[in-house]
Simulated scan of single mutants.
Amino acid sequence: MSTGSNRILDEFAKLLTDAAGAAQGVRREMETAFRAQGERILNTMDVVQREEFEAAREMAVKARAENKVLTARLEALEAKFAEMQGSSFGEAAATAPRKPRSTK
């Protein structure tokens, strides 16, 4: 009888091992399905990927820095021009005739 109960326990252990393996397979398939569904939803929402966002952010930071440099250069040139004119640039610009805007 000892071999009979041992055999039953072995079969039960084998059954549990197979069930655990099947459960892991189902889990992997569910994860794959959820991931694919999530990607589909994100693609329909036009969500930006992290890499694209970081690239655009770096471009904006660089553009801001260049804008500050160009603003400083423009202010220096305006000051130099004002010195050459003997008055402030604002007054010289106010007295200068304006060109008519073109309509397109």
Rank of each mutant, 00 (worst) to 15 (best):
N67R: 00
E29V: 03
M1L: 11
A76D: 15
A63Q: 09
F89L: 08
L15H: 05
N6C: 06
V47M: 11
Q85R: 00
R7I: 06
L16G: 01
V48P: 07
V61A: 11
E54V: 13
Q37E: 14
P97F: 03
M30C: 09
E11P: 02
T44S: 14
A22M: 09
A94P: 03
E39Q: 11
E91K: 03
E11G: 07
R40I: 02
V47F: 09
R57E: 13
A19H: 05
E78Y: 05
R27F: 06
T95P: 04
K99N: 11
D46T: 01
E78N: 08
A22C: 08
M84F: 13
A19C: 06
V47Q: 07
F12K: 00
Q24V: 06
N43S: 14
A36Y: 01
V48D: 10
F53S: 09
N43W: 05
A76G: 06
G90H: 03
I41G: 02
R73P: 04
P97Y: 01
Q24D: 14
L77T: 00
V47W: 07
F34G: 02
R35A: 10
S88G: 09
R57P: 00
Q85I: 08
M84P: 00
R101C: 07
V61P: 03
F89P: 01
F53V: 01
A33H: 05
L42H: 06
A60N: 09
G86K: 00
S88A: 10
F12G: 02
Q85A: 14
A23Y: 07
Q37D: 11
A13E: 14
M1E: 11
L70P: 03
Q85N: 02
A96F: 10
A22F: 10
D18P: 02
M84Q: 13
D10E: 14
F81G: 03
A63T: 06
L42K: 04
M1N: 04
K62E: 15
A72M: 08
A22L: 13
S87P: 01
T32N: 11
T3N: 14
